[in-house]
């Protein structure tokens, strides 16, 4: 079990992962020592930051546009992930929250998977008007 928390009163993120390795065997997945096979948080941060800066930048929050932004965000992050040619199934989730009213948000996730091969990343991005929480799960198959 690991836990990750975004240090902020606005949003927090708790992640728990339960090890499945005793039940699901690592089926020929490239081992984690291979530099190319393992994704790192740094890589995800870079991709997510690039996409978010590009899609939203410093724009103010408008509800009508947020749906289109969010769609662009997940699409572009997914595209970038696939481009890295890593042998995973990817799940990208993104939440866009208007921060003007000072409301709280908590995103927590729990997984039941193989700790040795499957990865989870979280990235938090904000500008003056909104907050984005991007979660990326990479699951070996």
């Amino acid at each position: 079990r690991s836990s990750y928390r975004i240090p902020s009163r606005m949003a927090s993120n708790g992640t728990t992962h339960e090890d499945l390795s005793s039940q699901v065997e690592n089926n020929g997945h490239p081992d984690n020592n291979t530099a190319l096979a393992t994704l790192t948080q740094g890589e995800i941060d870079k991709i997510a930051k690039m996409v978010l800066d590009q899609v939203i930048g410093q724009q103010a929050y408008t509800y009508s546009e947020s749906s289109a932004w969010n769609q662009l965000i997940v699409e572009q992050i997914t595209t970038e992930l696939v481009r890295t040619q890593r042998p995973y199934k990817f799940i990208v989730t993104s939440a866009l929250l208007q921060t003007a009213n000072g409301s709280g948000l908590n995103v927590s996730s729990v997984s039941y998977w193989n700790k040795a091969t499957d990865l989870s990343f979280s990235y938090r991005w904000e500008n003056k008007h909104m907050l984005a929480v991007v979660n990326v799960f990479a699951v070996a198959f």
Binding site: Y61, Y63, S66, S67, W69, N70, Q71, I73, V74, E75, I77, T78, K89, F90, I91, V92, T93, S94, A95, L96, L97, Q98, T99, A100, N101, S103, L105
Partner: peptide, 9 residues
């Protein structure tokens, strides 16, 4: 406030 969540797999 507005909030929007989306995912792609």
């Amino acid at each position: 406030q507005g909030v929007h969540a989306m995912s792609q797999c």
